[in-house]
């Protein structure tokens, strides 16, 4: 019994260690959000609650800006839905693995299911046994802890930091996602998927298309899918 607990604990820490580079890489964004929230008039407590409950990157930054501009509640919520809608794809992708798990596991993994946790969920047996569930809990939980810690740093530093939004901190996110995508390109189908997604992401972003991110991703997925089908014939 004690042996089993030790093994589960080892799974948790392996998850946290695998997540560590990503937890460190969101440091600039966490600080950006914390300081931005203070500068846009939120209290320290409200800003922290944002990261504790909403637990999103872009969605938090965009909604704080909208709230500061006195945008209507509908606008704020709709923007949040647009930015978060990509998570529907993650949920669908993991559905067959997670739907059979008990409610408490589904709720906790669901709450922690960020881009980062999803990118560590690619293993064929991910979420299939207790150890892999605890592994995901360690990965997602440590990322949650990191995001909230960086937010707190931003809140404390926010009053004396300059406006960080124009400092190019978004490059850290780009570099992180490059690190997650490029090693995944092992087949022609994935390469085509990425190229098509990139092309439409640029077009939709330039023309300000609502749900452009998700639309571009789906077009990329379709392209990858068809290439794979053609090649396996």
């Amino acid at each position: 019994m004690i042996k089993r607990q030790k093994a589960l604990l080892a799974a948790v820490s392996k998850g946290a260690v695998d997540m560590l580079p990503l937890s460190l890489a969101v440091l600039p964004w966490g600080i950006l959000f914390g300081s931005l929230a203070i500068q846009r008039g939120l209290s320290g407590f409200e800003a922290q609650l944002f990261s504790a409950l909403v637990f999103g990157g872009a969605v938090q930054i965009v909604t704080v800006e909208l709230m500061a501009e006195n945008a209507s509640l509908v606008t704020i919520l709709f923007s949040a839905l647009i930015i978060s809608s990509r998570h529907f794809l993650y949920g669908l992708t993991l559905r067959e693995k997670l739907r059979v798990q008990p409610l408490s596991w589904r709720m906790s993994i669901g709450f922690l299911l960020t881009d980062e946790l999803f990118s560590l969920s690619g293993h064929p047996r991910a979420y299939q046994n207790k150890f892999r569930l605890y592994y995901a809990l360690g990965a997602g939980g440590s990322f949650y802890f990191a995001w909230n810690t960086w937010t707190a740093v931003g809140i404390v530093a926010g009053s004396w930091l300059p406006d960080l939004t124009k400092l190019g901190l978004d490059f850290a996110i780009a570099a992180t996602f490059i690190a997650l995508v490029v090693p995944e390109i092992k087949h022609l189908s994935t390469l085509i998927c990425v190229v098509v997604s990139a092309f439409f992401a640029l077009v939709f972003s330039l023309f300000d298309v609502a749900f452009g991110l998700v639309a571009a991703a789906i077009l990329g997925m379709l392209a990858g899918f068809f290439v794979q089908k053609l090649r396996s014939k």
Binding site: R86, L89, L92, V181, S197, A198, A201, L213
Partner: peptide, 29 residues
């Protein structure tokens, strides 16, 4: 088929997020 399609969701979504960060500034390419 849908599962195969969804297997591409990771790279597709992350690419659609980081490419505009690199290429688009002030709404311009």
């Amino acid at each position: 088929n849908i599962r195969c399609l969804l297997s591409f969701s990771g790279p597709a979504v992350l690419t659609a997020i980081f490419i505009p960060i690199l290429f688009i500034h002030q709404q311009q390419l």
